[in-house]
């Protein structure tokens, strides 16, 4: 049955989703090398684990938004998908800005060794 009111749906969904979205957005861009600090539970102790790598993709919206971080461990590519709004991510630090021209860096998966390097980007210029 068609509703007569103008799309009440979207607003209600936003109300719900806003409760699960982190207050401070994680600031980074595609191609950045980042340290992701995640809280993990070992027994009943909590400790912080760091995962360092290049952000190669970002997808989804709202509570489902997530990003992929890729790094090389012992010559083997490892990718981890982090939910953007997970409270388990305590901190995200940008180590290095990479200069890239696309939103998805899946081409890095086909590269080995030196070829995986990205050109470093200068920090954003201030508007004069």
């Amino acid at each position: 049955m068609a509703e007569t009111k103008k799309e009440p749906k979207k607003d209600l969904m936003k109300l719900v989703e806003n409760s699960s979205i982190r207050a401070e957005r994680l600031e980074f861009e595609i191609g950045d090398t980042v340290d992701v600090h995640t809280r993990i539970l070992e027994g009943d102790k909590e400790r912080i684990q760091k995962f360092t790598g290049v952000v190669i993709a970002r997808r989804g919206s709202g509570t489902r938004e997530n990003f992929i971080v890729r790094r090389i461990v012992n010559g083997e590519g490892v990718e981890r998908i982090f939910p953007m709004n997970s409270p388990k991510i305590s901190k995200l630090e940008v180590v290095r800005h990479g200069q890239v021209r696309r939103a998805k860096l899946f081409f890095l998966r086909d590269r080995l060794g030196k070829a995986t390097r990205l050109v470093e980007r200068r920090p954003a210029r201030k508007q004069a």
Binding site: K9, E17, S19, T63, N85, P87, K88
Partner: peptide, 16 residues
């Protein structure tokens, strides 16, 4: 209204 996911107090995502 629709489906989405929210995080519970332990930090897990719950489909709702």
């Amino acid at each position: 209204v629709g489906m989405t996911q929210v995080t519970d107090e332990t930090g897990r995502s719950v489909p709702v």
